[in-house]
Design a protein around this nucleic acid. Structure first.
Lengths: 199, 199
DNA sequence: GACAAACATGTCAGCGAATGACAAACACAG
DNA sequence: CTGTGTTTGTCATTCGCTGACATGTTTGTC
């Protein structure tokens, strides 16, 4: 009546996001405190005052409490890639598209670093992150294919190889970055990695 | 004790390997028949006539029944890389070191293809395979670092990037290979992928 | 304001992977 | 045969995760 349903159940979606963020935040605290594997889902649930079952209605897996936003970032990355000028080569466009997420990591200060460190030292999280990484590849692939020249028959293969290699460079750069305690410049590391690969 | 004093005390180790192979074989049959996720460890155990608990004394995880030999291959790969002439560039040496495992895949006929297909379509296996892939990186890294020229400060970073990119190329090539049903030449796919990345 | 549909939550029950503890069966040295 | 060490089975338990059911709580409609 008086209120337009904004965006059809918009309120529900807002509260849902809020609860999700609350869970992720508390979970992150506990994980950093006592480790990811050493923290049970029920502990997280208790910390936010709900049942363990309900937590799984907000996150499909325990890992998603840490990596839940990576899919969003992937979409943002794809959008940024699509927005790059068509003249840029695949490598160039990919590198530029990574600028924004890279800056986000830097501005986030120690929080992103702590997260990256935990991610690097927890096998279960590493595995989950690599899965997201694969999703990114699928999101980015079409926009790289568009930029490919040369024989059409191998276009998909070559585009896929470039995307995968670029993300590998990102991973390596982030790894060295975390090992350095965040002192080294992440964008320089990435540039060096990419240049080395393209030697 | 998942690890072994290996070469010493041969008989025990031999029987152990034999049982391991037996389990892996039966497991593979069941997995291909009814799917990896749809097969319980107890089913595999029953098929080889032992308790579920004992199966876990031969394989640390269910995934290892499929991927158990990947670590060995990694060591073989590292040895092959080390054996390449010192004049070869990192990329060249890595490519040549991959020749043998590639040939093994080809000669194995449909078996390797079926395995690769299941691996590609089962998230849990993909994740585990990527973990082994990371182990490979660590095994190969030192021998690539040896081959690096240029500023020493970034040598590790650049070497790591190249190794990671090379294995990414391998993954992409294998993926297209499985999608093609094994018709396309795997080594050509890999060459094309590497060339594209180094553009 | 009443009512029905949609949604969120708690509770209970269960599956399957993985681990620890203990006892029995076995091989093998002396 | 006896003692030692390894392998295996059995039992119990933890933990991630899912399904089913019941109970409220919103939300939108008449």
């Amino acid at each position: 009546m008086t209120n337009a349903p904004a965006s059809q159940g918009g309120l529900r979606e807002v509260t849902r996001r809020a609860v999700q963020a609350e869970i992720a935040g508390r979970a992150m605290e506990l994980f950093l405190e006592q480790g990811f594997d050493e923290t049970t889902v029920d502990q997280v649930a208790a910390a936010v005052g709900m049942s363990g079952r309900s937590v799984f209605r907000y996150f499909a897996t325990k890992e998603d409490m840490v990596l839940g936003d990576m899919l969003q970032i992937g979409h943002a990355l794809a959008a940024a890639l699509q927005a790059r000028p068509a003249e840029e080569s695949p490598w160039e466009a990919l590198r530029r598209a990574l600028d924004e997420p890279l800056a986000a990591l830097k501005s986030d200060g120690g929080k992103a670093l702590a997260r990256a460190t935990m991610l690097a030292t927890t096998p279960a999280l590493r595995a989950a992150a690599q899965q997201k990484h694969t999703q990114w590849e699928e999101l980015l692939l079409p926009y790289v294919v568009q930029r490919m020249t040369g024989p059409a028959a191998t276009r998909e293969l070559r585009a896929h190889a470039i995307v995968s290699a670029a993300l590998s460079c990102l991973d390596v750069a982030v790894e060295i970055w975390t090992k350095s305690g965040g002192t080294k410049a992440l964008d320089t590391l990435l540039d060096t990695a990419i240049q080395a690969v393209r030697s």
